[in-house]
Amino acid sequence: MKHCLIVDDSRVVRTVAGRIIKDLSFEVSEAGDGAQALSQCREKMPDAILLDWNMPVMNGLDFLRALRREENGKDPVVMFCTNENDAEHIAEAIRSGANEYIMKPFDADIVESKFSEVGLI
């Protein structure tokens, strides 16, 4: 079973996204900020990461840049999932190594479509 790490400071978002992603037959784990997520990735690199942008301690973009410098850090498919919905933020995320981008609010159809776009399902 593939593993997806959900990184978001909102427990509600983690819960909703977690239910959707479990329905896509993924094992799901959670982190509340970028630093926690990085620590979890060092222990076990996930196959996919759903990543919020604005979080305390370490934001999503800093996490992504740090992740891509880690050993095997280029392996996970990283999808931003954020309220930052303008073209400039999206372009910056892609330049920094994100594979896909989900604009909040989202629904199960969107998550499934994006997972399909990047070949996770």
Binding site: I90, I102, F106, D109, I110, K114
Partner: peptide, 24 residues
């Protein structure tokens, strides 16, 4: 709308072929 462009379009295709309007 936001939901329409996120189903079936990769983010690269969205950025390459669409412009975001003030309405969102």
């Amino acid at each position: 709308g936001h939901f329409d462009v996120q189903k079936g379009l990769s983010i690269e295709r969205l950025l390459a072929n669409f412009s975001r309007q003030e309405t969102g």
